[in-house]
């Protein structure tokens, strides 16, 4: 299926990706090509086959609900682009 430019711009918005207006046409044709190619799955008779939910059959483990980690605020903020004490700094989002 051929994607419209507005749809590609909308996907970019959802994905929080800035895309230059000049790149939209190329992206449009590349994504359309990839989607047209994956759409061959429509011809597979999937009947009542269940979707795969676990690659290797196994039961998920349970553990005691106790604290096993923590108190590492210095490590957590060590790579932050901007920080103040033990806080991540972002632009003001609430007026």
């Amino acid at each position: 299926m051929a994607l419209k430019k507005e749809i590609v711009a909308q996907i970019a918005k959802l994905a929080r990706l800035e895309v230059d207006e000049s790149d939209l046409d190329l992206m449009c044709s590349e994504l359309s090509q990839i989607l047209a190619w994956v759409e061959q799955l429509e011809e597979v008779d999937i009947g009542s086959v269940p979707p795969m939910t676990s690659v290797i059959e196994m039961d998920l483990k349970f553990r005691e609900d106790v604290v096993t980690d923590g108190n590492q605020a210095d490590d957590v903020i060590a790579n932050a682009p901007e920080r103040d004490h033990h806080f991540f700094v972002v632009p003001k989002v609430i007026e």
Partner: peptide, 20 residues
């Protein structure tokens, strides 16, 4: 926000988009 590249902007949504 938490690590890696940041392309700063006054608007958080725009900052996400520019950074990514």
């Amino acid at each position: 926000v938490k690590y890696g590249l940041r392309i700063a902007d006054d608007d958080l949504q725009v900052q996400y988009e520019k950074t990514r």
